[in-house]
């Protein structure tokens, strides 16, 4: 693919994106507008994440892409192939080996290190969007640190349902300043947002980049008497037996039998290679 520059984007565009990333890192949780480009995949398919990855990758990087925690979901395959083709970088499915990880909807189970960058694909970067549809208004609310509306929403949840009825894209407060959307990760992943790796968030269609530098304080919004609660299916992984990972629920047959398996396929594979076995490992083996 000699017609295209390394990692597809031209160097001017990458420079523009890197400036937005640096600004985002300097003001954690603040949404930096950037001139998002049309990418050769549709908006909503991760164009923000792809642009951030393209501006971040160097020829020496090792790249991993996950969607729903898995390396082999169709869109993860498609994005990984895109960078194999346009950047020629090494790719991996092993979390520990990757230097840049692009993700949609999950944070890997394995703890990330200071040598890694986690790039999120973000559909709607504005945590206040569904409370206030106007971008002009929400930018004003962030500028004035006017987050009362969000707390009212959380309070109304409790009044109506007895608890905060947000299961994913659970809003967080960054370094005591900006309320931020962590992208649609399950709230199970929220505590992992405080990590050693750099976290970059790219929203292509909405033209926003934001970031969390390593070890940034990230607090999930809650109330003293209704503290934030991390939830997962109360089962063990059917394949590797893990009881602390986030699980997907898989419908097995017409009778509606269920199986629960790790959503993080690399984590699950590593555990099985280490000899862990879940209750349904043998049955699943027979199917493949």
């Amino acid at each position: 693919m000699s017609e295209y520059n390394f990692a597809y984007l031209d160097e001017q565009t990458k420079r523009m994106i890197r400036r937005a990333i640096l600004k985002g890192l300097a003001i954690p949780g603040y949404q930096v507008p950037f001139a998002s480009r049309e990418m050769p995949m549709p908006y909503g398919w991760g164009t923000g994440g792809v642009q951030v990855s393209a501006a971040t990758l160097t020829p020496d990087d090792t790249f991993k892409v996950i969607d729903q925690g898995a390396d082999d979901t169709t869109n993860a395959v498609s994005i990984r192939k895109f960078f194999e083709k346009t950047a020629g970088v090494a790719t991996t499915e092993r979390t520990a080996e990757a230097t840049v990880i692009q993700t949609r909807h999950r944070i890997p189970e394995q703890e990330l290190t200071e040598d890694q960058i986690l790039v999120y694909q973000v559909p709607i970067p504005e945590p206040l969007r569904f409370l206030e549809p106007s971008e002009v208004e929400t930018r004003k609310m962030h500028a004035l640190e006017e987050y009362g509306l969000m707390h009212v929403k959380l309070y109304e949840d409790i009044a109506r349902h007895g608890e905060i009825a947000t299961a994913y894209a659970y809003p967080v407060k960054v370094e005591g300043r900006y309320v931020m959307d962590p992208s649609p990760i399950p709230k199970f992943d929220n505590p992992k947002l405080e990590m050693a790796a750099i976290q970059l968030f790219g929203a292509g269609r909405e033209q926003r980049i934001y970031a969390l530098p390593p070890y940034t304080k990230v607090v999930s919004l809650d109330f003293e008497d209704y503290p934030f609660e991390r939830t997962r299916a109360p089962q063990d992984c059917g394949l590797c037996g893990a009881n602390d990972s986030y699980l997907d629920e898989v419908i097995m047959d017409d009778a509606g039998r269920r199986m629960f398996v790790c959503s993080d396929t690399d984590f699950c594979r590593a555990r099985r290679e280490d000899g862990h076995q879940g209750a349904m490992a043998a049955a699943a083996e027979a199917l493949t």
């Binding site: 909503g44 729903q68 169709t74 894209a169 399950p186 997907d248």
Partner: peptide, 9 residues
């Protein structure tokens, strides 16, 4: 696109 992680939660 798959949304099963969010749907699971």
């Amino acid at each position: 696109l798959p949304h099963y992680v969010d749907f699971q939660s």
